[in-house]
Each structure stands twice: as structure tokens, then as C-alpha cells.
Amino acid sequence: MKLNFLYPNMQKDIDLVEKELKRALTGAAAETTSDAALHLLEAGGKRIRPMFVCLSARLSPDADFEAVKNAGVAIELIHMASIVHDDVVDDADLRRGRETIKSKWGNHIAMYTGDFLFAKSLEYMTEIKDVAAHKMLSHVTVELSTGEIEQLKDKYNFDQSVRNYLRRIKRKTALLIAASCGLGGVVSGQSEADYKKLYRFGYYVGMAFQITDDVLDFVGTEKELGKPAGEDLSQGNVTLPVFFAMEDPFLKKRISQVTEDTQAEEIAVLVEEIKKSGAKKAEDVATAYLKKAVATLDSLPQVPELKPLKQIVRVLDKRNY
């Protein structure tokens, strides 16, 4: 999903963030740490979070792009750290179509690489002087960690509530995107009222983004996803399409029998069933969140620079990979 076409300066902004990310991860005292971190960086990624930092900051004509760049790098480093740790917990061998750090270097190197990435994000945050930015990012990082623990606790728990799921994806995904938008507003000197609206916009987009990811885990191909389809289910992560599919008591009984020992053939059969019965309903929930995101943007000053954020919502509503 490429979004750089939405704003003329977007590629320039993201290229500067990408260059700084590479500089940040090069030359660590432990060479293996740099090698592992750069391995993940070079695997690519959407860079959604720094993109939102930049687009939100561009709403202000007085934005200091050095501060904006540092905020974007800090946000992306936190995201990278979280997925390195995720891959250890999930015992994942592929990420973005490439071997994971855990798979290539082992669990110990992966965990310390994740810690290194978190620490580097703190370095970049020290360059941002506004206390509101630090409060925002520290809150989100704590919530992210809580979400990871909740996901571990709820693995293979097919009796958990939808509320549990929504709270979990809020913590694991939505709040970091919310912080991306809010930080862009803070570091560019926008009013508290406006950067809080940007934060709220990011939250709605983040919820829709994760729900769509969870749908794609059932309707996408391994080539599109960079990982096997149905991997969430096989790892015991109960997502919104599964909740909707389990409204059928017979299907719930079959899904509830999934364990870490369930064969790939059975997972494949269940993926097809969930695709038919739960995917569309989950997509509708994602669309409802995007409508709330648009309503939030409509409450902001209607400057021309707001247009790319509105276009992103339309693109996300049609996202299929």
C-alpha cells in the first residue's frame, strides 16, 4: 500500500526519515545489533507512522522539520522494536517476506535488538523539548506493552469478549498511530485543541488499520501478506473476523478446538469458513471507524494541507494488502 502520491513533499519527507533511521541503526557498539536492526529496516515497510507525523505537522505553516523528523524516527523505532519482540513471542520465521531477526540470529539477539531500538527512540525524543510530546509517547509505550501482555494472556481463549479484542488492538496498534498524528501536531506548534483532535483522528484510523489487517489475514495470500494466511488463528490470536464467524455455534465449536498443535490443513479449512462468514462484517466495522476519522478531520481548520489526510482515509477504506 503506497501512499506517497497523496502529497507532493511526502516522498522527500519520508526519504529524510528513512535516511535518519539508517544512520541511527548504523555503527552500534555491538556490530550484530546494527546488522540485525538494519536487516529489519531494509525489509521495508509502509512507514505509516512517520508519514502521519509528517502530514499532521504539515498542517502548520511554521513546522520545524528537524523536530518533525526526530518525532517520526522515534515513532518508527518504537514500532520496529515492538515487532521484533512480537516475532520472538509468536515464534515467527517471516516478516515482510523476509527471515525475522529471531529466525536468523535467535531469540537472545532478537530481544536485545528490540531493546536497542526502544533505547534509540528515547535518544531521538530527547531532541524534542515539548513536555506534551514526551507525555504522549510515554503513555502510548506503556499501553503498547500492556497490549502485548494481554495478547499473550488471551491466546487460544475463544471465550473472550469483543471488548477485550478492541481494547487490545487499541493498545497494540491504534494508540501508536494516534501518537504519530498527535506528535506531528505538537512538534509543529499547533494548539492543544487541534493536536488532540489529530490524536483522536489517528486513533480511529489505527483501529480501522488493525481490523483491516486482521481481515487480510484471512482473505490475503501469502505473497501479499509476507506470511502464511491464517497465521493469527494458528497462533491463537482471536480477531474480529473470528468473533463474527463464531456467531454460528457449529463453527464456534470447530474454531474453539484450535490449539498450537492444529494441523495446517485444518487451519486452511477454517480460514475459508471465516472468510465467508466473518470477513465482511469486520470490514464494515473498520469502515465505521474511518467515518469517525473523517468527522474528526472535519472539525479541524479546513486548510489545503488537510486534503492528503482525507485521501488516506479513502485509500484505507479500499485497502486490500
Rank of each mutant, 00 (worst) to 15 (best):
Y7F: 14
P8G: 05
N9S: 14
M10P: 03
M10E: 10
K12F: 12
K12D: 14
I14S: 05
V17Q: 09
T26C: 12
A28W: 11
A29M: 09
T33G: 14
D35W: 06
E66D: 15
A67Y: 08
V68E: 07
K69V: 12
N70G: 02
I75E: 10
I78Y: 04
A81E: 06
H85G: 10
D86W: 06
D87Q: 06
D87R: 05
D90F: 02
T100M: 03
T100Y: 01
I101Q: 01
H108C: 07
I109V: 15
A110M: 05
A119S: 15
E127S: 15
T141W: 04
T141P: 08
E143W: 08
S145C: 15
S145E: 01
G147F: 05
L152M: 14
R163V: 08
R167Y: 08
L176I: 09
L176Y: 09
L183T: 08
S188E: 04
E192K: 15
E192W: 01
D194V: 12
F209L: 03
T212P: 00
E224F: 03
D232P: 04
S234W: 01
P241Y: 00
V242R: 06
F244I: 02
F250L: 14
L251R: 10
R254F: 02
E260A: 07
Q263P: 00
I267G: 00
L270V: 07
K276N: 14
S277Y: 00
K280C: 00
K281V: 03
A295W: 06
Q302C: 04
P304L: 13
P304V: 12
K307W: 04
L309R: 11
Q311C: 11
V313E: 04
R314C: 00
N320E: 04
